[in-house]
Amino acid sequence: MSYVGIFKMHLKGELQYRGKAISGIVTQVFWGFMRISLFTAFLATSSMQDFSLYQMSSYIWLGQAFLAAFYITVPPEVNKDIVRGDICYKFIRPMDIYNQWYASVLGSKIASTLLRFSPIIILGFCLPNSMGLMLPVSFEAFLLFCVSMCIGVCLCSAVILIAIYLSIKTLMPKGASAIVMSVTSLLSGALIPLPLMPASVQTVLNFLPFRYMSDLPYRIYIGNFTIAESCMQIGIAFVWLVALIVIGKLLMKSSLKKVVVQGG
């Protein structure tokens, strides 16, 4: 199947369910209000210099709108293959299994994000300053936001492929993906926005790939970085992307060898 075909298939699948998309959006909006309300209470105890209320709420709304893009989960069809033991057949096919899964993961991410993000963004723009979504600080920032979003989604897909590898390795996809998901959401700032963490923690997180997924684009959007800083960080993100894909491919290849040996 061509990559466009994979994408179309996911889009169709997403559109299949009327309620699922709508109730997903409703849930995310509610969640957004909840989180903004919580962090507002915290910011009321002591305000922060480079993370105003408006910046915080913008960060949260972006996170809610693009939740599907950065959600870490092993695709259910891969899950099923692993549990049933059909995974070895996948390796026999004359296709690069990594590329195929990567395309599938990325396709489903793009499809479900495109379907869900706009209502939340529009709602965010309509809300008052203390709890709404701001416009990007500048046009350049917006462009850089778009670029870093693309890299971020690809980076996230690469992390999912590693989660898939761990699932195959342990043969326990539920547990493996739960661990990857919870660790990633803590380290990427999906649970607590990075600017609300102590400086020492932030420094450590700068040396890990996770914050280059969602934290970087959102903070470019709200104007935390200058253009030069943004460009440099995007560069780091890109290096991480290449590194994780190479690591993922190598890991997948090693598990392929093992399957072949076992199959004997």
């Binding site: 179309k8 889009l11 169709k12 559109l15 299949q16 009327r18 998309a21 709508i22």
Partner: peptide, 12 residues
């Protein structure tokens, strides 16, 4: 079809 299922979001 894709368009049909999109319409299905609103009316059934």
């Amino acid at each position: 079809g894709v368009w049909g299922s999109f319409l299905g979001l609103f009316k059934r």
